[in-house]
């Protein structure tokens, strides 16, 4: 089986993330770019299947700027076999629609039986790209899975929603996405890191996956304005000397919150 794991490089959430308010885009220089943690879990789901099923190939696929290679190397050091990086200057500022179109075209080029993604990235957080990729490919999407069962020709799982949960299943090929409850990712070991340097990392342009850089005829979204909200500042602070509960009740009453 060929499993393609979709990955993304994102600003590290352990730092204050910045938006370039002039361009309306993520300021990628403002903090350390890392492989999105949810992608490590998606990769772990693929690697666990490969651990039990010889002949499985795990491919990483990412669309992103130059530095994305380091996120792909991280995934390779965890154990993925091959990485594919779609890199094209025409993709700067690509919206959800273009991102999905590009990933779908790249998937057609690489071939796959199963596509695994994280449920939502920590930067854009749209949580829709896997479903959009599935629509492009005319395939089922099984997303937001807390638990996944992969077998030779099918995939099944439990999907968490706001209202409870759903048991879902589909024949392969299919596109799935997993939540942070799906699998705890392994750490790359020293051997893995050494091996990763020799694993193939293929770079593809839009022309090489058969896409027109103008995306003629497709609607797109664009940022009109972006502004930093004034930082919240701390207000009143008191130290409890026996009456803080009553003072807090007074505050809530004066703010008409009770």
């Amino acid at each position: 089986m060929k499993i393609v794991v979709l990955v993304k490089q994102v600003p590290d959430t352990y730092e204050d993330r910045k938006l370039d308010t002039a361009a309306g885009l993520v300021d990628r220089g403002a903090c350390e770019p890392v492989l999105d943690e949810i992608n490590e879990r998606a990769l772990e789901v693929a690697l666990r299947y490969r651990d039990g099923n010889k002949g499985t190939e795990v491919v990483l696929l990412s669309m992103g700027p130059e530095g994305t290679a380091s996120a792909l190397r991280k995934g390779l050091s965890m154990g993925a076999d091959v990485a594919v990086h779609v890199l094209d200057s025409a993709l700067s500022g690509a919206d959800l629609g273009r991102t999905a179109a590009v990933l779908a075209a790249a998937l057609r080029a690489t071939g796959f039986d199963l596509v695994i993604a994280g449920n939502a990235s920590t930067d854009g957080g749209g949580g829709v790209v896997p479903a959009m990729v599935a629509e492009h490919l005319g395939l089922p999407h099984l997303t937001f899975l807390d638990a996944v069962e992969i077998s030779a020709g099918t995939v099944a799982g439990v999907r968490a929603t706001e209202h409870g949960s759903l048991g879902v299943h589909a024949l392969l090929p299919a596109v799935i996405s997993v939540t942070e409850r799906s699998a705890e990712a392994r750490f790359p070991n020293f051997k893995g890191i050494l091996k990763a340097k020799k694993k193939p990392l293929q770079v593809l342009s839009l022309a090489e996956i058969g896409l027109d850089p103008a995306f003629a005829g497709a609607g797109r979204s664009a940022v009109v304005t972006a502004a930093e909200r004034p930082a919240r500042t701390g207000g009143t602070r008191i130290t409890d000397e026996g009456t803080a509960g009553e003072q807090l009740a007074d505050f809530l009453a004066s703010a008409r919150l009770i």
């Binding site: 938006l19 797109r220 664009a222 009109v224």
Partner: peptide, 12 residues
């Protein structure tokens, strides 16, 4: 909530 962004769609 650190940023407020307005966006629009080209096309209908």
């Amino acid at each position: 909530g650190a940023y407020t962004v307005e966006s629009a769609v080209e096309g209908s």
